[in-house]
Design a protein around this nucleic acid. Structure first.
Lengths: 355, 355
DNA sequence: GTCCGACGCTAAATCGGGTTAGCGCCCGAT
DNA sequence: ATCGGGCGCTAACCCGATTTAGCGTCGGAC
């Protein structure tokens, strides 16, 4: 370890003044309290020469504020998908001089309790409760000890906690409009969920909301969904199987895949069937996972704005922190972050052939 | 905010004793200092009823130890690849009751300095300096203020800091042996680097080391590399281009791709050429990125053990923290974490056809 | 009856910084 | 000469927990 930290007392001694005087000068309140120029200079010089840095822990103890926020997730840090969420939160926090504690619960409620406790013990000024994929969560009641925000999650029970979520319904509309704008009207199939509102994977908020948006935008244009093939899980193999099943009985001209992994499987099935993307079949998808730009042709996808979600969560958290906590009637506001369309090469006008 | 934290003073008052007495009981030193059973019970009961939790900040101030370690990376949290690294570190830290501060530098030295300072100001007990991909880094000198470990990085200048790295040379050997074990002896090509030691992407430690291992294992078996096609960057498109170029002039029976993204491009080129994996061409790769098990046939890959790297870094850091810092002659030890082979479907014995 | 010693607990100081109240001093006014 | 009033700085206390030194009390022994 280094010799020892330079403390305020060291600076004061070097400047030949008392500790509080040094404190006043360094906190910028010297002017206001009429500290003499001479003393001010001496203190500033001493602080500079000794490379004085205030011990934040001490300030923390006195003020009860740690300039730290806790980021607790089920398994966010792990998933590439959501790593950007942390990054956005990190940067937004840093801009305000805050640090981030990270914790993962693995979905274990006991672990979650321990983590939240550990963070409270460390006097975090606020908490972000994040989920890897959008879902409803049971909000632990110990969370009320500090301002908190739900990220990518909705509370099971009504709570006063604000939530930050991707705007999945609008994303659904946008995906549909990508096809409509390209001129598609017929033979549009869904892979991953639908066509009915009940045909969605369990617990998937995203599936429901995307489906709502898709149906809404298509209905608006007077277009009917030709069919839907739900998948039990949204992995490439399921996309492959579902698309194969579809191709056995129908000849789609456009696919809306519920995420990029499914789209990847769909690509394989289309390729196996000798169908070309986008000339024979247009494909649009969701998430904008890195693979979307790795597969050929590059996949048009409605992106999950992870980075912005992270930033937004911190922004909302700071308004919570600085806001008056005496407004208990306020119900948890839901902030929706837009999901942008990343247009690539998988969309083309419908082919002229019979349909 | 909640009413107020329960402090030791509250517990003491409730138990009708002084603060120090309560402290002694709760720290378990009551017996040793002959606190009466009666008082001990009263204190314990009061603490339990009031749900007392010691304020770690206070302990931190007094002891100078924060039970916190800092994890500073260039851009690790972002990359799915390395998110597991954080997870491993997180779990290893949690097992010891430590929390993790996360910071990203984006490769900005100024930002790095600020972050390290912010962490020191918060009295972190140790630091992990991580890099997203293995490379040499300039170690900031302010790092000496606390025990530190390099993760996935090597110091440019010799330092006493230990480093934790994947065992890339052995990984190279293992990749080669996968092919050798399957019976391959001829027409083994490298995609991404090689065949010469100078044909590697700039700054890529992994490329050099993997190449060393590959050449070593092949040489041991008396097998010669048929050829190598370096890529400027290890993205799918480059793998595609390099493999196309190779196929224009040669007929490979096995490919060693320097990472999975390159392998993905190679798959596309092979597919375009009407070659089947693994019947016509076996493919082995590195990293074990999730796509390795998404593409068809599933790709055999030598995995980057991110989770273990993170754990190992914390383990090493704790030995640093607890070790005597009076051994200055010790040179930074390099810990290598083994990279396991994930055998999948992309390997087959060489076809019987002419070669 | 007095003194010593153990027993059981607490007063006080510590960590590093921030805040409030107030102490001397010098000056001008009366 | 005395009083009043700024001016410039510092004494003292606070945050919450821990540690060291030491205080009162009771019992037994001489």
């Amino acid at each position: 370890m280094s010799p020892r930290r330079v403390t305020l007392a060291d600076v004061a001694k070097a400047a030949g003044v008392s500790r509080p005087t040094a404190s006043l000068v360094l906190s910028g309140r010297g002017r206001e309290l009429r500290i003499s120029q001479d003393v001010e200079q001496r203190v500033l010089r001493a602080a500079d020469e000794l490379q004085y840095r205030p011990n934040i822990v001490s300030v923390n103890l006195r003020t009860g504020t740690s300039r730290t926020i806790g980021f607790v997730s089920d398994t966010v840090a792990t998933s590439r998908l959501a790593g950007d969420m942390i990054k956005g939160a990190l940067e937004a926090a840093r801009e305000r001089g805050f640090m981030l504690f990270i914790g993962e619960t693995e979905g274990d409620a006991g672990l979650e309790r321990l983590l939240l406790q550990a963070m409270h013990d460390r006097q975090v000024d606020g908490l972000i409760l994040a989920s890897m994929f959008t879902r409803t969560i049971k909000v632990p009641k110990s969370i009320t000890a500090a301002p908190a925000v739900l990220l990518n999650a909705l509370p099971e029970q009504p709570t006063p906690l604000p939530a930050v979520l991707p705007d999945e319904v609008e994303a659904g509309r946008r995906a549909a409009r990508v096809l409509l704008d390209a001129g598609h009207r017929d033979d549009i199939y869904l892979i991953g969920a639908g066509p009915g509102m009940s045909e969605v994977p369990p617990e998937s908020v995203a599936a429901v909301e995307r489906l709502i948006g898709i149906r809404e935008a298509l209905a608006e244009a007077g277009v009917k969904v030709a069919g839907g093939h739900p998948c039990p899980d949204w992995q490439p193999e399921h996309g492959l199987a579902a698309t194969r099943k579809l191709l056995a009985t129908a000849r789609p001209r456009a696919l809306i895949c519920f995420n990029d992994r499914i789209a990847m499987g769909a690509y394989q099935a289309l390729d196996d069937a000798g169908l070309n993307v986008p000339d024979d079949v247009s494909v649009v998808s969701f998430d904008d996972h890195p693979i979307a730009s790795w597969i050929r042709p590059k996949l048009t996808s409605v992106a999950l704005p992870h980075y912005e979600l992270g930033r937004k969560a911190v922004d909302v958290l700071f308004t919570e922190i600085s806001s008056d906590h005496t407004a208990p009637d306020r119900q948890g506001e839901v902030h929706r972050v837009p999901m942008p369309v990343r247009s690539r090469e998988s969309i083309a006008p419908p082919s002229a052939q019979s349909g």
